[in-house]
Design a protein around this nucleic acid. Structure first.
Lengths: 143, 143
DNA sequence: GACAAGATGCATATGTTAGACATCTGATAT
DNA sequence: ATATCAGATGTCTAACATATGCATCTTGTC
């Protein structure tokens, strides 16, 4: 019931990029800004690009931006893409004497759906800024 | 977003005991029945007893039984007791440039509550047996 | 008092996740 | 055209959490 560091920062990367709307942001900037490993962050960004949440551009003055508007990216979808969330327990892994009687698996599946659905009531846009409409750049100058 | 093996089997132990309603069940019986480590199961049982889901009895003909009726034990509460579920991410661990702007933490807390609440719509009694009212002993003789 | 069962604490193994490094590919500016 | 900057890829290592094992103690019942 903890998100992986990977997923946690996956969300934060997207929020950071959303808050710096428009501008191309580099891995280096984010890793310095959050104080986390450049190398590990690289893998997070790569996965986010593969999952089509980020668009990346190589080369000089490259960097990343959101692949879609922040108001169209839902955090539950991001979690599903970064975290293995499909089955919370595996009833087939070991012989289970309760098989056929037990509805634990169904209940857990429903609960997982409730989790994701609740996250998907939001978008990146309203998680960062929201009503106040504040931009990151106005609050905390990068570096 | 995976339950620990520990929590997963914590729930299954309770369901097993619930399905064997009334009878005292030993760690040894459960570990053989599920095919998992006796030693690890011991710790699970211990934690469940501490958390007042199980009542244990030492000595000859000892074993465990539910501390309360199966219809009064809710699986979401069990998960909360066995799994660290309080904060899914920790905003204070690293310096986060989004602090003050970002509502990710709140959204995750709401989602976690939705997860637990959904689990707590059930009780041990309806997860095992439920409408059919079938008892484990009728379906799969122990060993 | 002997035995069966859980309690406790420490030591070890395993697996997952995070971090580091070296090298390659692609895009842009000059 | 080429130098340079930024991401892509793959392998290796380190750190940490979790599961497992073992030895010993405690408690309750026969």
């Amino acid at each position: 019931m903890q998100l992986k560091f990977f997923t946690d920062y996956g969300l934060r990367v997207l929020l950071y990029v959303a808050a710096n709307d428009g501008r191309l942001v580099t891995i280096d900037e984010i890793s310095r800004s959050y104080g986390i490993s450049h190398e590990h962050l690289r893998k997070i960004v790569h996965k986010l690009a593969q999952s089509e949440f980020l668009a990346t551009r190589r080369g000089k003055d490259g960097g990343m931006s959101l692949a879609r508007p922040a108001s169209e990216i839902r955090p539950g979808d991001v979690i599903e893409a970064l975290e293995d969330v499909r089955t919370i327990i595996d009833c087939d892994r070991d012989p289970c004497p309760l098989r056929g009687v037990c509805r634990l698996r169904t209940a857990l599946d429903d609960a997982r759906d409730a989790f994701i659905d609740t996250m998907n009531k939001h978008t990146l846009a309203d998680l960062v800024g929201g009503e106040t409409g504040a931009k990151l750049s106005e609050l905390q100058p990068a570096e």
